[in-house]
């Protein structure tokens, strides 16, 4: 078995379960980052129930709902791109990834108009109008901009990752025999969806 050494060296190391384990460990840090922010939100809500209740009604439920559905669909299309890859359909994998990226762009456009309307009304961190309001209002909108902003940054990072995955799929370096990168990119995208699932009711729905 002398030729073993040469065959080993020509084979790149590939360990999909190990890669996924690493991805999950990273996802845990993200979960706890947003988890800590959810606790901050709950505590402030507990201490300023009236202000949070009133400030809550300022937010547009319709835009929030549309963005929720967009993210849910994009999560499904990423999951489907993995199915397509497992069935060996490279073209369909790429189409599903493109649809996901398109939905991400639509999400960000909605966010732009939503934030734009708030800023137009003089509601943004440190604005004169906001500072004239009560402590609870300042906290609510501070958390609203920080948490949805941090989430939007995650959307952008997710898009960069999915573009990278798309290129790798196109090159054929991510293929039916080794698609851990696609799976892990998908996991990141689902995480972004997962965070929004909690952001939406907390900021837009609960009165």
């Amino acid at each position: 078995m002398e030729h073993n050494a040469t065959t080993l060296s020509t084979h790149e190391h590939y360990d999909p379960v190990g890669a996924k384990l690493g991805m999950w460990l990273f996802i845990f840090t993200e979960m706890l980052l947003f988890g800590a922010l959810f606790i901050v939100y709950s505590v402030y809500r507990y201490r300023h129930p009236v202000e949070f209740h009133l400030a809550n009604q300022e937010l547009n439920v319709t835009i929030g709902f549309i963005n929720t559905v967009i993210l849910l669909i994009s999560s499904a299309t990423v999951a489907m791109s993995i199915t397509a890859m497992q069935k060996g359909n490279k073209k369909l994998t790429m189409i599903f990834l493109l649809i996901t990226l398109l939905l991400a762009v639509v999400f960000l456009i909605n966010k732009y108009f939503e934030w734009g309307a708030k800023i137009h009304h003089g509601i943004y961190p440190g604005s004169e109008f906001l500072l004239s309001l009560s402590h609870g209002d300042i906290l609510f909108f501070g958390l609203y901009f920080f948490m949805t902003g941090l989430h939007a940054i995650h959307i952008i990072v997710g898009m960069v990752i999915l573009i990278w995955v798309f290129v790798r799929v196109k090159q054929g370096r991510v293929n039916i025999n080794r698609y851990a990168l696609l799976e892990n990119g998908g996991l990141y995208w689902h995480l972004v969806d997962l965070i929004w699932i909690f952001l939406f009711p907390l900021f837009y729905l609960i009165h």
């Binding site: 999560s75 499904a76 990423v78 999951a79 799976e183 998908g186 996991l187 689902h190 969806d193 997962l194 699932i197 909690f198 939406f200 009711p201 907390l202 729905l205 609960i206």
Partner: peptide
Amino acid sequence: AMIIASTKAAIVLLYFMH
């Protein structure tokens, strides 16, 4: 709202995140 959000999260974790 929290019960439904947790249910949705569980579905995403179990099925989409495999």
